[in-house]
Structure formats: structure tokens, C-alpha cells
Design a protein around this nucleic acid. Sequence first.
RNA 1: AGGCGCGUAGCUCAGUUGGUUAGAGCGCUACCUUGACAUGGUAGAGGUCACCAGUUCGAAUCUGGUCGUGCCUACCA
Length: 927
Amino acid sequence: MDKTYQPQQIEASWYQTWEDKGYFRPSGKGDSYCIMIPPPNVTGSLHMGHGFQQSIMDAMIRYQRMLGKNTLWQVGTDHAGIATQMVVERQLQGEGLSKHDLGRDKFVDKVWEWKEQSGNTITRQMRRLGASMDWTRERFTMDEGLSKAVAEVFIRLYDEKLIYRGKRLVNWDPKLHTAISDLEVINEEENGSFWYFRYPLAEGAKTADGKDHVVIATTRPETMLGDAALAVNPDDERYKDLIGKVVELPLCDRQIPIIADDYVDPEFGTGCVKITPAHDYNDYEVGKRHELPLINILSDDAAINDNAPAAYQGMDRFEARKQIVRDMEAAGLLEKVEPHKLKVPRGDRSGVVIEPYLTNQWYVAIESLAKPAIAAVENGDIEFVPKNWENTYFAWMRDIQDWCISRQLWWGHRIPAWYDRDGNIYVGHDEKEVRQKYELADNLELIQDPDVLDTWFSSALWTFSTLGWPEDTEELKTFHPTDVLVTGFDIIFFWVARMIMMTLKFTGQIPFRKVYITGLIRDSEGQKMSKSKGNVLDPIDLIDGISIDALVAKQTDSMMQPQLAQKIEKATRKHFPEGIAAYGTDALRYTFYSLASTGRDINFDMGRIEGFRNFCNKIWNAARYVLMNTEEQGCSKPEQPEHFSLADRWIQSRFQRTLQAVHDGMANYRLDLVSQAIYDFFWNEYCDWYLELSKPVLWDDDATEEQKNATRYTLLNILEQSLRLAHPFLPFITEEIWQRVTPLLNVEGESIMLQAYPASDDNVIDEAVDKEINWVKGVIEAVRNIRGEMNISPAKAIPVLLTKGSKSDEQNLANNKQFLSKLAKLESIDWLDNPEQAPLASTQLVGKLEVLVPMAGLIDVSAEKERLHKEVDKLEKEIARLQGKLGNEKFVANAPGEVVEKEKEKLTSAENSLTQLQQQLQKIQQL
RNA sequence: AGGCGCGUAGCUCAGUUGGUUAGAGCGCUACCUUGACAUGGUAGAGGUCACCAGUUCGAAUCUGGUCGUGCCUACCA
């Protein structure tokens, strides 16, 4: 074995082996356990969030697989309608073409080509993580089977009147030329202006204070071209008399009425509002109440259309805005302009300002679907972890709006609806079926709706469509409902809620029993990772490493704003002066687990991954030690329990405790605690103590062959069990070592991933053994402390005396002389019956027992005094605290007996210690 | 505006139903290449648990408030 762990030498080949041999497929035996992967974008690439969540899912799947479950981790990708179409359009643009030049069919062919070509990137990266998903069942939302499910669902909902077509305001993306849902709109505060316009009163009307105009304020002047009314609050004294009067709409040669509506806040602006029903959600509602006309003044590009005065037609909306402000000013109708902060809605993909726009769209009537979905969480059929995410879910679900599912794209599931010349709607799987279903004449001309469905519509069916629905398949029976969904809180609305609704509706089952909501990975300063900030970490770079130059090139590559490149380069070079080292997959995964606590933000710190790389190296070297000491002699299972040393029994006991902690952590989705438990056990107990305690046995000429065999067996046995314990989290290194270890134990098996998880055995837990080892550790640490504080060379073997202890201390000494001598590097260790005979010595206490290192020639008196003073100070503080507590009658009266008893014991022992150390101090001071 | 979360060592984070001397990793100090490992070992230093008040015999933990910070939802034209 190499002296250090080299992950890159083993990872790829092990993964290949596992996949080739079909280990990721369901075993077909045992209870089922199923996780559905949140399908990533087929043309995307792996980011830290994917890495984090998939590492978690893999740990759960591997754990359950080893527990004997029939596990399915369903893998797949989605078609990401807008994102993917945009990429291909941009490519075409590079060739000077638009999608219209190609036409719909050819364009869609192009997208498929792109998908074939780039679709492997992310799945290849997922394999690098060691993710044990069943690739033979990989699905894609645009697959034939899934597409069939999508159509089926659409048709059934339509036939039940739960899908309808309606003309209303939607969020229109003028760049992408499609409607997008509320969730795809990002509202961010930006600096804008408040323009105050005068609208002249018609027919000589006057305001209460004698003016011949009213003033309105707007942030979007161009919308005035579509104004249908002015509105005031009915109780607003200033405007009461104007209600029902008419104003001249400037620049438009139209008159519009003044209406009264409670919607208007008299306190805000001028208390008088222009109403533009076709371009504002609130105005739309006001317009409906007052039967105002809908005047749409924008085109699909958000340019001014023919409904507006000729002067503005064809102008872009922002150009028109400027022109209108100039024209109003020229007409003397601009009262003032104020700077104003407002929330600007932008498309999350395109980044352009979204317009409320009047179009025909398809909607899902959501209320009847939402009710059972709310109930399923209320009654506990589905549980969120951590629980408080349920509130977020409820808040949204109880105020849910109908879902706009049509998108004006070419890439996606085509809406299965046809129209005749009169605009009648026919819904069915295909034209032929539609004609039959609606008994239409063969010669009736039908045109299919050009739109496609929102990608989330197909993702909402993910848990059952991937298992073969609408067919009644074996897989559905076996794996549905699934066990747990692992995802981020950012898509509770987008995906989780919609999945619950659709799955309940069409299968009558919940999609999953638990929703484990993970935190979001941010950079070490808590910033969201984003291309524009140049702080994105690529999980693959953490695995393979990357030079600083390559990293800088990557961060500044194809930036939207090239002027940021310099800044990013500087920051990148500062954070990663040497680039990123190759830490390997296991280290990366372990880092993710250690961060998987209940918080919602996770700051990814490079120090952590380095620590876990070192942990892997520690495991590697521990294995080297074990193999070096067992390979030649081999071992067999000891026939007599007595052959085991105290240390052997102790590490077996500690292993069981660790196993319990791991099971508890897995049950509670606390992978951070699991990873901590394994780390502590392996490093701080197995390596730091057990391996060291094995040396005195293996290298002791007086030890019997049976004893040595028992220790060799325990070394191997605990190592082998630890590998299985850690395998779900560190799949590669555990497999590699396991393969080398098992021959020595005569364990059969092709792969660690198909082995049983270590078995619980409460009989192995032995508190007496634990106590005795703690005593051994205590004495060793006492000596080491003196050594460290007194600057005694670690190379120097020293004599030690034990005194003032109990019978059991004496017994412990007799039992453990070998351990003590070796681990504390002692020249001798002896029991002193009469403390009076003790030589001048540096003293440490283990309980009442005094550990003495004779000072002769070793120890500086003043250093020892200082050390004792430090100890005495500490004890005095402790005693004062305990006396205060126990002196408080109320404490003694109210606290539970055990607690009081415990405090009393602490006090007694501290007092004893203090006395002993003070005596010692006196003795030294007399010199 | 409403809702949710966070504030514990220099940094990244744990801390179970209130009861330990408040923990881990990284970083820091000193010593050490001893026959698994310097990606290591040994011994240390380092915290008024944001702040204030309350409940309690007892608060990092429970309650109220303040400050700081992050996110989500809804919005004012």
C-alpha cells in the first residue's frame, strides 16, 4: 500500500465495476426503499447543491441497501424548457440564424441533438460522486413513457374541467416571448422614478381647491397610453366631487372617467391613481369591478402597438417612456419627478423586466387539488424534516393561485389540444383520437395548440411517471409511495407541492413519506454561489483539483459583464492562492455530511474538506498498520473470550456505541452527527488508543500466541466492521481497503456495498471495561501532561510511582503495566504502599490516585510549582462554584436528588484533589 | 408590511426533553521524524454562548424585548 491515500487511483475503476456488475439495481429481496432524484437539467452541469444532495441520497440508499432493503434510487433528468431552448437559440444566433429560420420541427431536432451531445455531462459528473443510482432505469421527462403520462394527466384534468383556457394577465417575458409563472419572476428593489403627471379635467370641472386638473403619480409612464380611468378613494374629501367626472387623457385624445374604489390608498402619492387594466394586476381587478375596457398597448416584444397613438407606435417600451415624459413636459403637464425605489419584476432566466400582459393561457384550477395535499401534511402522512418547513408549505398552499401551465416555447410537451376554425377546443392524445372522441367530421380542419407545458408540469408527475404510470406496473406496486425526497427549500413551491397534488390526484397515494429539506450551499463568506460573483465552486474541481490559472479562467469565462472579470480574478487568487488540491470524492462527500445539520445556509469552508482528506489518509494508514501486522501471521477467531485483551474488549464495546449513534443519526436525518460519530470513533478511539494499545501485545515476547491472535483478530475485525459502517459515506476508500482486509478474515463477498451493515450486539457493550480503559488513559495522560509541561523529551523513558490509590487502582496497575509502560514511555512503574516514602516528584491526580514522576534530574522545581499553582487555581474556582451551589438551600431542596448527589461528589473529589495538591505544593516550597 | 431563520473559540460549525469544567475540525503556541500516518504525534492557549429583562434552585437551551444579519412571501400606483 502507498504511504498516503491516492483517491484518483481507485475511484473510477471501482465505480465502473459497481455499475457494470449491476450492484445499483434493486436486489428484488426485502422491503422496498426508494428515493427519487430531483431531476437536474439534462443540459446542465453539476453544482455544489447537486453534489450535496446527491451525496446525502447516496448515503441513505447505500445504508438501506446494506440493511437488506430492496433499494431503488431512480435517476433521471428534466428537459428544462426555457433554459435549454435558450442555449440552443444562442448557438443558432452564433451562426446568424433564428429559430424561425429553421422552423419548429427542425429547431426541435436541433435541441434533441444538443441534448444528446451535452446530456451526458451531468450524468457523468454524478457518477464521479460515487452515486449508486440505477442507471438502467434512467428517465428523461421528454421520454416517450413520461410524455404519455403528461398527456394523460392533461387530458384527464381537462375532461374533469380542472384545466381550462383563459385570457388574463400573465407574467410576460418580452425577450423569451413566453408567459412565465409567478415563481419564475424575481422581484428586486431598484432605483426608479416617480413621475407626477397632470391630467386636465374635461368640461370645465374644477378640483376642490380650484385646479383644472388632477395629478397622478406613476412609475411606468408609458402605460398611460392604456389608461382606462382615474381612481380615487370614495371617502377622500379632496376628490369626492370629482367622482363621475371625466378627464382628458393627455397625448391620447381620449377621455377617461374618474371612478371611486377602495383599492386606492388616499395616503399614498396624490391619492389619485391612473388605472391601466391591461397592464397591471391591481388595475385589472379594478377594471373588472367597474367594467372598464382593457386597452392593450404592447406587442409581444413589449413595443408600443397599434392601439396607441401613432406617434408612439413601434417604439420600445423604455424609449416610449422617455418620449412620453418629454412630451408631457413640453405640454406643461409634468408636475415633478421624484426618485423612487421600487420592486422591479425580472424574469429569472432572461433578466429582462416582466410585463403583465393579456394573453390566452392554459391554467390548472388548483383549489380542489390543493385541499388533499394540505391534508396529507396536516395528518402526518407526509412529514417535512426539519418540521418547520411545513409552515412554509402551508402558507403557500392555503393561498394558492391557479397555475399557468402553458409556455410559448417549442421545446417541451406540446399541449394536446386542437382548435377548429371557430376556436372550439378538442383535447385528446392525438388528432385521430380527438376526432373520434368529439365525433368530428373527417374534413373538419384542426390545428394543434402551438404551446408547450411548463417543465414543472412533467416534473410534478416524476414519482409515478418514472415507475411506468399510467400502466399498472410492478415497479409502481413495489416502490410507490417512495420513502424520502431530498431537496432544497427553494423548490418547495415549484416542485414539492405540485408533486404532492398531482400524485394524490392520479395515484391516490402520497408521493413520499418524508421530505428532507437540505440547506443551501454558499461560499465561505455566506454569499450565494453565482457565475456573476465568480465564487462558484465546481464539485469536480474539489475532487480532481485545479490550478489557480485554470480556476481563474473558469470563473471569468463567458461572463455577462466582462468588467467584473478583474475583480473576480483578484478575489479568486486571494481565496485560492495555490488553486485547489485534489481532495478526492470521499473527502468531498464527508464534508457534505459534516455540514448537513438543520440550518438552512451552509457556508462551504475549504478547511473542512482538507480535514476530511486527512481523515481518509488516516483510515488508509490505520489499514496499512493493521495489514502489516496481520498479513504474515493471519488470524482466526479466538476460541476463548479470555484471550481478548482489555483493549480488545474495549474497542468492541466502543464500536457498538458508535453503531448506535450512527443508526440514531440516520433515523433523524442528522448526517452531521453520523459523520462526527464515525470520525470520533475511528480517529480518537481506534487509531489514537486501540492501535497504540495493540502494540504492547503484538510486540511483547511474553504474550501468548492466543493473546496475539486475539488482538490481530480484533484489529482486523473492527477495521472491517468500521469499513462497512463508513461505507455509505466513504464508498471508495472503504471498498478498496475492504478488498484487502477480507481475505485475512476469510470473509466472502464481491463488494463491500453488498455486505450487511454491521450488526448490533448489546452484549459486547461492557461498562467495566470502559471504566478500566478510562483509568489507563487517565494515568497515561497524567504522565504525558507532566512530560509536556515539564519539557521532558518524549524520547526519554521515565520512572513513575503510583500512590494513595484504592485497591482497584492497585489492581488496575497490576493488570495494565504493559499498556502504561509502552504508551507513556516508562522506564518503570511501581506501586508505593507508603506515601511517606515518596521521593520529591511532580504530581498529577487520577481521582484520588497520585501519579508521581520523581523530579531527580528531570524536573525544574519552579516549573513544577507553576504547574501546581495552575491546577490549584482551577480547583479553587471549581470548589467555590460548587460550594455556592450546594450552599443554596433552594437548590438542595428543589433539584432532583441525583443532581444534588452528583454535585456533592464533585465537591468532595475537588476538595480532596485540592488538599493533595496543596500538600505537594508545600512540600516543594519547603525546598 | 407579513412570515421564517440565524447570531456559541480567530474561522466553519455541533450542543438532544433547562442540570458537563460549553464541544469538534481548521487555524494558533511549544515540543517531537518513536518501527501506520508530518495529510502525523504529544501537551497547551483560546469563549461574559449578540445585548437587556423575566421564568426557575439552576438558562447557550424556555418567555418577552432590543440590536445585527440573511432569506421567503406580498406589495404603493
